[in-house]
Design a protein around this nucleic acid. Structure first.
Length: 465
RNA sequence: GUCCCCAUCGUCUAGCCCGGUCCAGGACACCGGCCUUUCACGCCGGCGACAGGGGUUCGAAUCCCCUUGGGGACGCCA
């Protein structure tokens, strides 16, 4: 059996969004799983809407996700001659013909047909005219008038379309450029693509493309039409649903492996397993377990799985990302040892890298900002002696020794007659400004004895007697 | 309008192909509780679904039909 060849062919008319990213992932994973090849191609035949900046951002997104391709990127805009030769061949063999119907006439006919409840399809006016090539002529494919197109889709099963539903589609525009259907088919044929995994919005385009394959006498690829990704309102994902671009998720502090995990699990399953690494996916992904119905994108679940991936990651692997977000928030991070220790205390508490950096702010500040509620509740005159006792107990102590810290706090408990919680909270607020933070001992160990004592003394100084 | 696709908890899904082990399992969210120095993590428990109607069958979430609902396509866009 021939090696599997898949491809991801976005059109650079916008950024890479979640739906597209999932399609890319499926194709990539399937090629990897089958030991095949994965091709990356840019369908930029729409000169009006295609932009270089979109191409750049799509590539950036692919790289960020770690989706590597074996061939490409290919640009359709550079392959015009190839398409033209195929179009020529189709005309030559009588499988296609020139058509001079004006766009306006066509548009009117379409509207008329829609109004009277008919099918808005081309009426085949020029089909048998044998028109010569002229400046404003388009080329249309001669679609079979009867019979049906039947194909076995890897996710939808057997799908059939009656040819009577289809019309003679334009394969070459009057300006001489090929249309989408022609270009895709020619590309897939010439690039050896034999497995087409794409959104099921293409399902009804498939019979048209099959006709092109057949007119060319080429074998069909295996089709796998995956269901759409919908927004929370059950509508197709679009700009209205908030953050769309893959890169925006990166900028929110989502880990690429988490986004991959999330996206693949949206529409594909492996029993009850929820957590996957990319490598695991390369071994397990298959076409059979792709679901048949559309799925709603749930940001909450993305956050949750991202938290799982943060927790599963080694602190070293989180370092760069953490620093990016920390500096974005104006934090001056320190040396590796310190920052790594910070991450260690925060990784089970953060759903995103952004959140982690926010929670880390107190580690890097000189002046702690006390939350008003926390301050009112815990930085009270009654707690002043407690804080003084803590300073005394911690003075000169090696705080990296958690056992020693514990012993020191026990001394404070004895001296004040208070439970640990009563002592910990004021200290926590003094150190972080907040009532919620990492564990007291681990935090003090990271901060160091000197900083800890200085902060508590600062606090004591601010408590009104 | 026509054609195509789809239909299990609010959401992602397992189960469906090869009917009985499913008065339907897991996860997110939500609600309790435990753990505990706070928060979080973790653990335990709760809430919560086979769209409706007909068949077929001893028996249907699983097979068939219809209805309804949702999505998609119908371009000299991709």
């Amino acid at each position: 059996m021939a090696a599997i060849v898949t491809r991801f062919p976005p059109s650079p008319t916008g950024a890479l969004h979640l739906g597209g990213a999932r399609t890319a992932l499926f194709n990539w994973l399937y090629a990897r799983r089958m030991g095949g090849r994965f091709i990356f191609r840019l369908e930029d035949t729409d000169v009006e809407r295609s932009k270089q900046e979109y191409t750049d951002s799509i590539i950036e997104a692919m790289k960020w996700l770690g989706v590597d391709w074996d061939d490409g990127p290919f640009y359709q805009s550079k392959r015009t001659e190839i398409y033209l030769s195929f179009i020529e061949k189709l005309v030559q063999t009588g499988k296609a013909y020139y058509c001079t119907c004006s766009q306006q006439t066509l548009e009117e006919k379409r509207e008329q047909a829609l109004k009277t409840g008919g099918k808005p399809k081309y009426d085949g006016l020029c089909r048998e005219k044998g028109l010569p090539k002229t400046a404003d002529a388009v080329v249309r494919l001669k679609t079979p008038l009867a019979g049906k197109v039947v194909f076995d889709d890897a996710v939808k099963g057997t799908v059939a379309f009656s040819n009577e539903e289809l019309d003679d589609l334009v394969i070459c525009r009057s300006d001489g450029t090929p249309t989408y259907h022609l270009a895709v088919v020619v590309d897939d044929i010439t690039m050896g693509v034999n497995t087409v995994i794409r959104g099921d919005d293409h399902l009804s385009n498939t019979p048209r493309q099959i006709h092109i394959y057949q007119a060319l006498g080429e074998p069909l690829p295996l089709y796998a039409h995956v269901p759409m990704v919908l927004g929370p309102d059950k509508k197709r994902l679009s700009k209205r649903h908030g953050a769309r671009s893959v890169l925006e998720y990166r900028d929110m502090g989502i880990l690429p492996q988490a986004l991959i995990n999330f996206l693949v699990r949206l529409g594909w399953s492996c029993g009850d397993q929820e957590f996957f690494t990319a490598n695991e996916l390369k071994e397990k992904f298959n076409l059979e377990s792709i679901g048949r119905s559309a799925g709603v994108f749930d940001p909450q679940k993305l956050l949750d799985i991202n938290g799982d991936h943060i927790r599963a990651a080694k602190v070293e692997d989180l370092l760069d990302g953490f620093r990016t977000f920390a500096s974005k928030q104006g934090l001056a991070t320190k040396d590796d040892t310190f920052d790594l220790a910070v991450i260690e205390t925060l990784k089970i508490r953060a759903k995103t890298l952004e959140e982690m950096a926010q929670k880390a702010a107190f580690y890097y500040t000189d002046k702690v900002d006390y939350e008003q509620k926390a301050s009112e509740k815990f930085l009270t005159p009654q707690n002043r002696p407690v804080l003084e006792a803590v300073v005394e107990a911690l003075d000169g102590l090696d705080v990296s020794d958690l056992k020693a810290q514990e012993a020191a706090f026990e001394k404070v408990m004895e001296k004040t007659g208070l439970g640990f919680g009563k002592i910990a909270q004021p200290v926590r607020v003094a150190l972080t400004g907040s009532t919620a933070s990492p564990g007291l001992f681990e935090m003090i160990a990271v901060l160091g004895g000197e900083t800890t004592i200085r902060r508590i003394n600062d606090t004591i100084g601010q408590i009104k007697a």
